[in-house]
Design a protein around this nucleic acid. Structure first.
Ligand code: MN
Ligand code: MN
Ligand code: ZN
Ligand code: ZN
Lengths: 142, 142
DNA sequence: TCAACAGATTAGAACAATTCTAAAATGAAT
DNA sequence: ATTCATTTTAGAATTGTTCTAATCTGTTGA
């Protein structure tokens, strides 16, 4: 067994543990998708992940991709980012951070959470509490 | 001619002027929709405006509602608010301000622009400039 | 080891929001 | 009035997402 193969196996075991810890049965599809999501921070859509899976030779249905993205989000493994109507984006970076968004390219770039400070938020409407503060800095090519 | 009728007529003339100023031909439909949007600040969707028009006895097609909302947005008479994938919201308040958003009720509440201060935004990616900073304060009923 | 079953996956239908098409209507300019 | 570019429209088409109900699979415990 070569080194890279052994590394891959260990990553798979890790992934399976992480799924179990999240209360999700470690199925072939979930493990494969979790593997594709990987360790670096990424912004993906359901369709893009579905294409990626197909390209990687993992035949998983689009319905399962949607199910899995929502389950991962509920489990705190992903975060959903509302950027523009029409398409949902999921973020593998679940920590406190914000985004640059370029309408022209559709690209999403992280802004570290410790950089931005939002001040002066009024008390929320009676009977509600603040859940999260999302900042999207819309940028344009020049 | 009664007072209220005269007021309505003047508002209509105003609306027509404003459409002309925006470079839009003041058609029956555009004037009616602009009238419905009114002067108070509101958050609407295409479908909700379409229903409102129908209820007001103004038969305007859904396609025209979409066209008009986009044209008004382009002309700076409306602003599009990205809140959640799936439905577009338009805002008759085009000034600098932000929003509370309650996922449970779908309600959108204005936060005056002079209240919130966003600090520490990093320089935008090379070759781009900041267009707008959107803040959405997500709230939950408790 | 394997039977049994709850939970997961799937193809495809259904759905909701939006956009497109191309034909008919209309505002503006003669 | 006539003309013509612009606008409106009904309905089809497209897109992203969710639903359905049949099939499959991971887990459990004999
Ligand atoms: Mn969702
Ligand atoms: Mn739009
Ligand atoms: Zn991010
Ligand atoms: Zn607003």
């Amino acid at each position: 067994m070569r080194k890279s193969s052994k590394r891959k196996t260990m990553r798979l075991l890790d992934t399976i543990e992480r799924l179990r810890a999240a209360g999700l049965r470690p199925t072939r599809q979930r493990a494969a998708l979790a593997g594709l999501l990987g360790s670096e921070h990424r912004h993906i859509s359901a369709e893009s992940l579905h294409r990626e899976a197909a390209k990687a030779g993992v035949p998983v249905s689009l319905a399962t991709v949607y199910n899995t993205l929502h389950q991962f989000t509920e489990a705190g493994l992903l975060r959903e980012v509302a950027i523009s109507a029409g398409r949902s984006y999921f973020d593998t970076n679940t920590g406190d951070h914000q985004h640059f968004y370029c309408e022209e390219s559709g690209e999403l770039v992280d802004i570290p959470g410790n950089a931005i400070v939002v001040d002066g938020i009024p008390g929320p409407p009676k009977g509600t509490a603040i859940d999260r503060v999302d900042v999207v800095v819309r940028i344009r090519r020049n």
